[in-house]
Amino acid sequence: MFKKIIAKSMSKSPWIYHVNTGSCNGCDIELVAVITPRYDAERFGFKLAGTPRHADIVVVSGPITSQSKDRLARTLEQVPEPKVVVSIGSCPQSGNVFKGSYSVEGPLEKYTHVDVAIAGCTPKPEAIIEGLYKAAQILQEKREAMEK
């Protein structure tokens, strides 16, 4: 019974840790907009956590710059299992306008498995909420898979 409750709770209370890897702040602002009264992602139990140790979902925005590469790797490592990685915006996927720059070492797939990628420059808050909601479902699946 507990297993079921836990697995169900996984999707109902995903805590987010946000990593900025050289983003232009556009996506960051939209992510913050998601938890404002207008969009209110807390309806689904989303909460911004202060440390990767508490996080379930790691949200990455920005192309991966060479400076932030190691930091990102360390932060991702410190998140406890089960965890889900979500990328916001086009930058982590393709590099967007920063592609080809000497200091950009994207895309994110090179370093970690990305579970949900939210495209757009910048994605709308509605899109972000949907992406995060899907991430929460993936979290539950991962937890169920862990038990087996």
Binding site: V19, T51, R74, E77, M146
Partner: peptide, 22 residues
Amino acid sequence: AVRKNKASEESDGKYATFFGGE
């Protein structure tokens, strides 16, 4: 999945103190 001890094949990074990514 409470794991009591660090498994030998895991990297140190996971068990290092959190320094904001540093």
